[in-house]
Amino acid sequence: MSMLTPQVGDIPLPDPGPISTPYWQGCREGVLRFQRCLDCGAPTHTPALLCAACASMNLEWVDSSGRGEIYSWTRVWRPVTPAFITPYVPIIVTMEEGWSILSNLVGCEDNAVSIGQLVEVEFHHNGGPNDIWLPYFHPRSP
């Protein structure tokens, strides 16, 4: 068992593009943002030009509650590069607003993960040329 924490090594960091810049700016401000369609109301992530439900280009950025539940998980023991400390736990989180995000679980023992577990976002300052704050998720109570 080991306590899961954000990665602090020289991991590959995002290079935001024109579509994703508002998302990463939100992370810098401590807010998880997603896109919502002004025509049909559906949420979209990862950042896109088109609504995932109706292909409208009429999308707005809105703040997420930052809360969700674990949809699936894995626990990695063979790191993708030596920069990653193992074990780490990639998760897919279904957010309260109905969209999905890939992240890592932190703030609990590595064997405490399960599908359906309630989680909440936190942000970790990785820095780099784009001053990146990465969203991670930790367990929460109902």
């Binding site: 990665q7 991991i11 593009g17 990862t46 890939l102």
Partner: peptide, 14 residues
């Protein structure tokens, strides 16, 4: 290399 998966240590097995 995508910006929404690479930082989380993703590779094919994961």
């Amino acid at each position: 290399t995508n910006e929404f998966v690479a930082a989380y240590g993703m590779f094919t097995a994961a």
